[in-house]
Design a protein around this nucleic acid. Structure first.
Length: 589
RNA sequence: GCGCCCAUAGCUCAGCUGGAUAGAGCGUCUGGCUACGAACCAGAAGGUCGGGUGUUCGAAUCACUCUGGGCGCACCA
């Protein structure tokens, strides 16, 4: 009733062909010719640059062992979100924090020095000649079991941490050899997936440049923390529980400085978060760590100035890609900023959280890992670096390439081996990135080899395949001596109106033109999975089109022009979407 | 004990700020390759959205509650 009155009273709208009443709803039918025309001959599609700089910190792997699939989820989420932000016009800085002086590195040092009795020179030799991140992976697990059996061995860790902090001695030297070598391994692993960084801020510089001291003074001055005089935390500087959770009381206070005067992890993190916003009053110096063939440079923090050092930090918004298990600590960090009076920055601090990657019992069995009866009943089992329980990133990538190669080789026996290898790599990394992105962030991924190695259905290769098919149609056209018409001439609004009366084609056009919406949605919700989902739907629409509308054999000239234009438009939009996802399109499949 | 998260088809997951007959993929069953290459497509079967109460014209979506899972809650990082 009301709907009918509205329809009758509203009058004609530009671009809308008809309004219909349907069971209390009003359906607007777009003018297909006009809509199509705006896609064939767009006015201007440049994305406007946005003010400010967004810092996205991700990866952050302890440099003491090989990266595993949990780390990959972090890095792929972070890297993709960066690409999404950049696609929507933001200036973004990719940071990867390196804790090269922490307990995890110290434990591997303990392994080399106390268990294996190796000198720094011998460790350096190992780093050069072996699959070092794998060696450390095993050693770290060994140290873990050793601690469990010899509780006193924790003294070794203490001694090691002490030397590393003081900055001298064999233990310190081994620590830096290990951390530097493992960082190189991680960078190489991530590079295989197209992931890179702008700057690597390291804990060693945070320590030597005394970032903490500056933050400590400010925290005391603004009374964000106080010296506890009684109870279990007597002698410690603590942040009251009420600062980060209104339901908390004094007894839930968080220790920031221990009674022995050393700072806790959270305290250091507050100082670091302040630096990211340019609030600390201190800064790093930088050195060029590496430069890739494509010109991309990665800088690393240093204590001494060098020539031509770029400026990092001073962000207006900060995303910390950290798994959801650390949400409590992230809350404390943000509360620290707020208590210091930096309310704006506190609001611009986003814990970009995601659930862990666990393993299915079946995958554990395939890896030869023994599980308790209890674990076998679970739907997934948590990974543990300390126990050496996990799937190494490079092993998984290798396995994916191997699997892809088995599909590629028989399809293209005549192609050069090198080219087939490149195709297999594109498929493997596309499959992996897509697999990690298709789940929304707060879904626990129960990793399963069979599922991850699949190239059919809702997978990266499915999407790549659609893109390859679109390219193939266009290249076949040229091969047959044809050429692309000038669509702006060949497809005036009237022609589009005629051709788009076909619902199948109209639906495809609607699907293709929604990329901007998908990206905006992903930015607003912080959900890269939206873009992955859009890519899949787009590929589905195209595969459908591919079967329903033979392009090159179409005899009606106007329709053929439309089909060719659609193919090209699809190809363009899908490739753009895949680029945002960090997935490349192989030359053939 | 307190806090956060999750529960949707046999399995794995979507479902954005509540809106029309709840969607994919896998698996199962039927069909489709002398081809713009089937890593594909078409079709079928399969769900009282964990239970309950409430708010609303309207709830998978919001609130409360119960049940069953997961993860946190150190002078560890």
């Amino acid at each position: 009733m009301i709907a009918k009155e509205i329809v009758e009273g509203i009058g004609p709208i530009e671009g809308v062909a008809a309004l219909e009443v349907a069971g209390g709803y009003i359906n607007a039918r777009l003018d297909r010719g006009l809509y199509g025309r705006s896609a064939v001959a767009p006015d201007s599609s440049a994305v406007a640059a946005r003010p400010g700089k967004i810092i996205v910190e991700h990866t952050n792997i302890n440099p003491n062992k090989a990266a595993h699939i949990g780390h990959l989820r972090n890095a792929v989420l972070g890297d993709t979100f960066i690409r999404i932000l950049r696609a929507s016009g933001h200036q973004v800085e990719a940071q990867n924090y390196i804790d090269n002086t922490g307990v995890q590195v110290a434990d591997v040092v303990v392994g080399f020095h106390f268990l294996e009795k190796k000198s720094p020179a011998e460790v350096a030799e190992l780093a050069r000649t072996t699959r070092f991140d794998y060696v450390c992976w095993d050693l770290y697990a060994r140290v873990g079991t050793y601690y469990a059996e010899h509780p006193n061995a924790v003294e070794w860790r203490k001694a090691t941490l002490h030397e590393i902090e003081a900055g001298h001695g064999d233990l310190n030297e081994i620590g830096h050899i290990v951390a530097d070598a493992i960082v190189e391994c991680h960078l190489a692993t991530m590079r295989r997936l197209g992931i890179t960084y702008d700057v690597l801020p390291r804990e060693s510089e945070i320590l030597h440049l005394e970032f903490w001291a500056a933050a400590f003074e400010l925290l005391k001055e603004r009374e964000a923390i106080y010296l506890e005089t009684e109870g279990k935390n007597a002698g410690c500087w603590v942040m009251p529980g009420s600062s980060f959770d209104e339901n908390k009381e004094e007894e839930d206070s968080k220790v920031i400085v221990r009674s022995n005067g050393t700072v806790t992890y959270v305290g250091k993190d507050i100082a670091y978060q302040m630096w990211k916003f340019g609030l600390l009053g201190k800064d790093f110096h930088y050195a060029l760590l590496k430069e890739y063939a494509d010109g991309h440079k990665i800088y690393v923090s240093t204590t001494e100035p060098s020539e031509h050092e770029p400026a990092f930090g001073k962000g207006t918004q900060v995303y910390n890609v950290i798994d959801s298990r650390q949400s409590y600590l992230q809350d404390v960090v943000v509360a620290g900023l707020r208590q210091l009076g930096f309310t704006e920055q506190a609001e611009k601090s986003v814990h970009f959280s995601y659930e862990m990657v666990a393993l299915t019992p079946r995958t554990c069995a395939e890896l030869g890992l023994e599980l308790s009866e209890e674990d076998k009943q679970r739907s997934y089992v948590e990974m543990s670096g300390r126990k050496g329980l996990g799937v190494k990133a490079d092993d998984l990538i290798d396995k994916l390439i191997e699997t892809a190669q088995k599909e590629v080789d028989p399809r293209h026996p005549e192609a050069p081996a090198e080219e087939r290898r490149a195709v297999a790599e594109a498929i493997a990394t596309g499959a992996l990135r897509y697999f990690l992105l298709k789940f929304t962030r707060n879904t626990v991924i129960a990793f399963d080899f069979q599922e991850a190695l699949s190239f059919e259905g809702d997978t990266g290769p499915y999407v790549q395949y659609a893109a390859v098919r679109a390219r193939k149609i266009l290249s076949k056209l040229v091969e047959q001596g044809g050429e692309l018409p000038d669509f702006s001439e060949a497809l005036p609004a009237a022609a589009l109106s005629r051709q788009l009366a076909d619902d199948g084609l109209w639906q495809l056009l609607l699907a293709i033109s929604k990329i901007g919406k998908a990206i905006d949605g992903a930015v607003n919700s912080g959900e890269p999975a939206h873009v992955a989902r859009y890519a899949f739907q787009l590929a589905q629409s195209f595969n459908n089109f591919y079967h329903a509308y033979p392009v090159l054999t179409e005899e009606n000239a106007e329709k053929r022009a439309l089909l060719l234009w659609m193919t090209g438009y699809f190809r363009e939009q899908l490739e753009q979407t895949l680029t945002v996802l960090g997935i490349s399109v192989p030359v053939y499949m």
